[in-house]
Every structure is written in structure tokens, then in C-alpha cells.
């Protein structure tokens, strides 16, 4: 078996391959559903209904998609420059910590000033967290996959320490959770009575901003060049290391905004289960979107829909909602394969 490079794919194939990857994913999941003794058609029907069958379901899906858009963008930006940021999970928590530190009454400011201020500091916290591994990478050649991945575990333990210590809510009946945010630090809901909040709008604006940066700006051009061929970029006079550090700042900041949005928009306080792996799912989202910032929005809604839909489905069909995890994991594998098939033609002898 050999791989031969293919010419650049047309727009049609670029869209067709992700669709094909999703189709294969559904097929694999169907086999598991059959093994669980249920009818795949009715199960997927229930998933679809649970994800988008009503205004309530749709809004739940968008709410769930919001942090995934942020982490997806963080991963997409970093991967473009071949900076393998696997630590969006930790950066998200860094943003969440800053939100709680600044938003529980430390700064008595009106919402219009306080919210942007918290968002900026949260983003800075995430940026700083990724800056460390990036500096280690450019100065000493330390593999950022290892450092960013391991920082996730460090961060979870750090949050746990804070929640048992300085950030512990004295009125929380002993639960490891922080105090509630003050009203001025809460992101308002888009529709009263529903959970969808303005963090979703912030996510959409971020996606657009990232798209503009990648496509139109000098920095975006540099990031893509460094990602494709750092040696040629250095030869051309591009400050490769500085570009990688800037990439790290943007990527870490985006993931941290996800943490800010979750705490200020949805949860209202910090707990250890703030993120059920949004940082890791962000990798799936970014790959499904083929690192396109606008595609990230679509992919995030898709992945969120699977999770929300599977929850609803498991309540009625009796198939465990873990099927969602299987589907998302399968989607990553099929998508990576699809991306390879898009770039290369497989020749069997």
C-alpha cells in the first residue's frame, strides 16, 4: 500500500469528506446500538429529536456547543501553526478560576465594565498557561504535546486544591465549590427561561474574528507559513519563534474564554465538573472543521447535538448515553482518515 499526494481538493470534495466521515461514524454507532438490542433507526431518530426536535432541545444544544466552539477555535488556531495544544482543558479552567476570583465581589463595578474586564483577565490567564509550554518548545525543544497534556492533570488538581481551600464556598455545606458570582458578573440569558446565554454570541464573534485573523492578517499568513514549513519560513525571514508564541497566546486565550463563558453564563460558580472534557472534545471539533474557524461553529454544534441528543435518547430507548462518547471518538478517527484521503491517493500495489 502506498500514498501518493493529490492535487488540491475542490470545494465540493472538501465538504464531501467530512460528511462521509460522519456517515461512517453513524454506521459504526449503528452496530453498537444493534448490539445493545435496539433499533438504530429509532435510536438515531431519538437522538435527532433530542438535539433539535424542539426549541428547548435546540437551545440546549447551542448551550452545550458554546464551550466547544471556544476550545475548538483554540485547537484550530494552534494546530494551524503546528503547535499541538492538547491542553485546552487546563486553559479553560484557568479562565474559569479568574472569573471566580474577580467575579465574586472583589471588584464592585457595573456589569458593562466588569464583564469585559473579567473576560480579558480570563483570556490572559489561559494565554499565560500555554505560553509556558510554548516557550519550553521554542527554547529547549520540549514536546508541547506532553507538556500541555500533563498540565491538564496539574490544573484539575490545582482547581481541586482551590475549591477545598481559598475559593471554597463557606455556605456550600462542605461541597467542593466556589462562591456564586455576583449578579454584575453574570452573562445574561438570550431568552428568559432558557439556559442559552450571551457566551454563545461571544463564541460566534470569536469564530469570526479568528477567521479574519487567519485569512486576512499578516499574522495569519505567518502562522500558516510556520505551520506548513517552519524551515522555509525562517529562511524567508519570518520570526518563527515569536510567531509560535503569539499563536500560543491566542490559542490559550480562546480556550480560557470558554471557561469564562461557562462560569459567567451557565454555572455561576466553579466546580470540579465544570468541563466534561470540553478541551479534548475541542480537538475533535477542530479536526471535523478541518481547522477552519467558521467550520468550528458547525462542528461544535454537531458534536454538542450528539451529546445532548444521546442524553435524551438514553432516557427513552434504554441505550446508554455513552454511545455519544463512542460516536465522538469514532468521528475523530474517521475524520483524520478522511483528511488523509483528501490529501493522498491510496494505491494498492
Amino acid at each position: 500500500m502506498r500514498l501518493e499526494p493529490k492535487p488540491a481538493p475542490s470545494l465540493a470534495t472538501t465538504l464531501l469528506f467530512p460528511v462521509g466521515a460522519v456517515a461512517v461514524t453513524v454506521l459504526v454507532a449503528s452496530l453498537l446500538v444493534l448490539a445493545a438490542g435496539a433499533n438504530p433507526l429509532s435510536v438515531f431518530g431519538l437522538v435527532l429529536k433530542g438535539a433539535a426536535g424542539s426549541q428547548f432541545a435546540l437551545m440546549e444544544t447551542l448551550t452545550r456547543a458554546t464551550p466547544l466552539i471556544f476550545t475548538g477555535l483554540a485547537v484550530a488556531v494552534a494546530f494551524r501553526a503546528k503547535l499541538w495544544n492538547i491542553g485546552a482543558e487546563a486553559q479553560l479552567y484557568a479562565g474559569a478560576i479568574l472569573t471566580v476570583v474577580l467575579g465574586t465581589g472583589a471588584l464592585p463595578l457595573p456589569a458593562i465594565v466588569l464583564l469585559p474586564l473579567i473576560a480579558i483577565f480570563a483570556a490572559l490567564a489561559g494565554a499565560m498557561l500555554l505560553l509556558g509550554p510554548a516557550v519550553l518548545k521554542v527554547r529547549f525543544g520540549v514536546d508541547e504535546v506532553v507538556t500541555t497534556l500533563l498540565l491538564n492533570f496539574v490544573m484539575i488538581l490545582f482547581v481541586s486544591m482551590l475549591l477545598e481551600g481559598v475559593l471554597k464556598d463557606p455556605t456550600g455545606l462542605g461541597w467542593p465549590q466556589s462562591q456564586k458570582l455576583i449578579a454584575e458578573a453574570r452573562l445574561p440569558r438570550i431568552v428568559t427561561g432558557r439556559r442559552l446565554h450571551y457566551g454563545f454570541v461571544l463564541a460566534l464573534v470569536s469564530a469570526l474574528a479568528v477567521w479574519i485573523v487567519m485569512k486576512k492578517t499578516t499574522l495569519g499568513y505567518e502562522m500558516r507559513a510556520v505551520g506548513h514549513n517552519p524551515e522555509a519560513a525562517r529562511f524567508s525571514g519570518m520570526p518563527v519563534n515569536r510567531i509560535l508564541l503569539k499563536t500560543a497566546l491566542i490559542s490559550g486565550g480562546l480556550a480560557a474564554l470558554g471557561g469564562f463563558s461557562e462560569v459567567a453564563g451557565l454555572k455561576g460558580n466553579l466546580t470540579l465538573d465544570l468541563s466534561p472534557g470540553f478541551g479534548y472534545s475541542g480537538i475533535v471539533v477542530a479536526m471535523l472543521a478541518m481547522l477552519n474557524p467558521l467550520g468550528v461553529v458547525v462542528a461544535a454544534i454537531f458534536v454538542a447535538g450528539i451529546f445532548v441528543g444521546a442524553d435524551a435518547m438514553s432516557r427513552t430507548a434504554g441505550v446508554p448515553s455513552y454511545i455519544a462518547n463512542v460516536m465522538v471518538a469514532t468521528a475523530l478517527l474517521t475524520m483524520v482518515t478522511a483528511i488523509m484521503l483528501m490529501r493522498f491517493r491510496v494505491r494498492w500495489r
Partner: peptide, 16 residues
């Protein structure tokens, strides 16, 4: 390896 960025376009390469 050094003179060109293979996966970028002619346009993006001539201005590098």
C-alpha cells in the same frame, strides 16, 4: 524544503 512552502500557493510563496 527551504525555498518554498509546498502546501501554500504560488502567490503566498512569492511574497514570503
Amino acid at each position: 524544503a527551504v525555498g518554498a512552502i509546498a502546501d501554500m500557493s504560488v502567490m503566498e510563496n512569492v511574497i514570503s
